[in-house]
Structure formats: structure tokens, C-alpha cells
């Protein structure tokens, strides 16, 4: 029985290993620890966003604003640091607060006015993207020493491989989220609400607080992802991270989280992000394949995973009957 619950995650991990093995067999220089680390380096921001999204989706909602939030964070950071000369030590906490507040606001509207999360976060997406352009229509490049240091610093691991600071931030977020999801009342309430909001209410769980916190957390994650993205791009731009919301949702679903809510794993999301990274890496190693194949393959994977979830939930129902 427990196996059934974990099956989507097992499939995700298996798929990742399979793809990585296939890549290693086919391409020279693919099979190395550094390649995996590079996956993390390139997708640290996606990982952080996806962790926040996992909570939202498990709670039965969705957050379309994440990509725009990343862009807004890069824009605000760049503008304040570069054009107004604010110290990064002030700017980074500030943008994190901004992201959280943004998420909080969306969560409050979703909960108190009972408007579909889809629509509210859609408005949030428009708003955040639009605010980027209010700040500036053009790219703002950052040459602040703190940001460049953060971008260039390589942390050497035992064995000689290196990762960026962003990766460490992302991994800390993943571990914190794992704890949050499985060992705190907040985390369990999120699962309970995703299972049945009505029941959770009658069981006396703090629905309002939990739901609003979920979006606040997602807002926090996406602004943190925005900070990491700023390190990565060293610029602020209104067109940064366009379509990230889709990549994020895809990663979460491929990671075994049910879009209907109630079931999902942060660990699964971690591998969901890695699978997306592996696809990109394989396509870049292949050379002749163009980048749009990534989208097609991810679409295909989405299809397969959704079908798998369907089959599993159909089986689950049968199990109850007998």
C-alpha cells in the first residue's frame, strides 16, 4: 500500500537515473558528478521556485505568478543596487519581504474572497510583470561587487567538483521544505487542506492561516529564486524567467505531485527539476537537436506522468472497493 503512494516518486527517480545513464552511455564526458552539479547550478532558481509551488499545489491551489515574481525581484534588486546605490545587505531582505508580502496578499484574496487561485495568481502574474516595466523597459546590468562575487564564487566540494552559492541556497531550501512538509503542523495542515478543505475546517485546522501562508511561502520562494536568478544573470529585466511558471508546474507534476492536491513530495519535485535539467543537457550534448525539443519532451513527460497518476488513482479506488 505504501508502495503505491510512493510509486510516482520512484518512477521519477528511476526516470532520472535512466536518462542520466542513457546520456552517459551516449556522450563522452556526460558521466560525471560535475554534470549533475551543473544541472543544479543552472536550475537552482527553478528548484527554489518549484519547492514553493509544491506546497501550493499540494494545498489544492496553483501559483502562476512565480515567473513574473522572479523577474520583478531581479528588476527591483538591479534598480535599487545599481541605480540607487542601496547596499545588497538591505536590498536582498527587502525583495524577500516584497515577494512574501505579494504572496500573502494573493493568498488573502484567494481565501477571503473565495476567488479561484488560478485567476488571482494570474492577476499577480500580470501585475508583477507590469511593475517590471514600470521600473524600466530595458535591462539593468549589475556590476555591484557583492553580486558579482556571489555569481563567481565556486564552492569546492571534496573531490574537486564545484558548485555555486546558489546551489547551496537551493539545497538548504529543499531540506527546510522537507522538514516543513513532513515534520511541522503547518506542513501537515497543507496536506490536510489539499485532501479536503471542508474536512480540514471541521477538524479545526487553521485554514485561513495555512492557505495564506502557503502563498506567502511560494512568494518568498520565488523572490528568493529571483535573488538567485540575479546572481546567475547579473541583471534585472522584465523579460527574465518568462514561462517559468510552466516549467515549475511541469517539474512539480513530473515529481509526482497530484495537481488535484493532497499528494506530493518535495523530494519528488527535486528530481522533477533534475529531469528537466537532464533533458536540456542531453539536448545540448546532442548538438543537432534544437532547444524547442526540450519543450516537446517535457510536454511528453507531463503527458506520461499525468496518465500514470490517472492509472494509479483508478487502481486506488478499486482497492477500496474490495
Amino acid at each position: 500500500m505504501l508502495n503505491r503512494k510512493y510509486l510516482p516518486v520512484i518512477v521519477t527517480v528511476g526516470l532520472f537515473l535512466l536518462m542520466f545513464a542513457a546520456g552517459s552511455l551516449r556522450y563522452d564526458g556526460f558521466f560525471s558528478f560535475q554534470v549533475i552539479l551543473n544541472l543544479l547550478i543552472d536550475n537552482a532558481y527553478l528548484l527554489i521556485t518549484a519547492v514553493g509551488m509544491t506546497f501550493v499545489i499540494v494545498s489544492g491551489g496553483i501559483d502562476l505568478s512565480v515567473g513574473s515574481m522572479i523577474a520583478l525581484t531581479t528588476m527591483v534588486s538591479a534598480s535599487l543596487v545599481q541605480e540607487h546605490g542601496w547596499p545588497p545587505g538591505v536590498v536582498i531582505p527587502l525583495v524577500l519581504c516584497m515577494g512574501s508580502a505579494f504572496g500573502w496578499l494573493m493568498g488573502a484574496i484567494i481565501h477571503y474572497f473565495k476567488i479561484q487561485p488560478f485567476i488571482v495568481t494570474l492577476a499577480g502574474m500580470f501585475l508583477a510583470r507590469g511593475l517590471c516595466y514600470v521600473i524600466s523597459l530595458n535591462t539593468i546590468t549589475i556590476d555591484n561587487p557583492f553580486y558579482t562575487t556571489m555569481a563567481q564564487t565556486k564552492v569546492r566540494l571534496p573531490g574537486g567538483d564545484t558548485v555555486s552559492i546558489s546551489v547551496i541556497i537551493a539545497l538548504v531550501v529543499v531540506i527546510a521544505a522537507l522538514y516543513l512538509a513532513h515534520y511541522t503542523r503547518f506542513g501537515r495542515s497543507v496536506y490536510a487542506i489539499g485532501g479536503s478543505e471542508q474536512s480540514a475546517l471541521l477538524m479545526g485546522l487553521p485554514i485561513a492561516r495555512t492557505k495564506i501562508l502557503v502563498y506567502t511561502f511560494s512568494g518568498f520562494c520565488s523572490s528568493l529564486a529571483g535573488v538567485v536568478f540575479t546572481f546567475y544573470m547579473l541583471s534585472g529585466y522584465g523579460l527574465h524567467a518568462v514561462g517559468t511558471e510552466l516549467d515549475t508546474i511541469a517539474a512539480v507534476v513530473i515529481g509526482g505531485t497530484l495537481l488535484t492536491g493532497g499528494v506530493g513530495f518535495v523530494a519528488g519535485t527535486f528530481f522533477g527539476v533534475l529531469i528537466q535539467g537532464v533533458i536540456q543537457t542531453i539536448i545540448s550534448f546532442e548538438g543537432t537537436l534544437s532547444s524547442w525539443w526540450t519543450k516537446i519532451v517535457i510536454g511528453l513527460l507531463l503527458f506520461l506522468f499525468i496518465l500514470l497518476q490517472r492509472l494509479l488513482s483508478a487502481k486506488g479506488r478499486q482497492a477500496v472497493r474490495t
Binding site: 495542515s189 477538524m203 493532497g262
Partner: peptide, 17 residues
Amino acid sequence: NLCPNLTVAENVFVGRE
């Protein structure tokens, strides 16, 4: 009025684990 996706134990204790 319980949450079908949580375990039996959690359903007994959720909110006061």
C-alpha cells in the same frame, strides 16, 4: 469529515500532533 489522503494516525491527531 476527515482527510482521505492522510494516514489514519494523522487523521486522529492532525492539528494536535
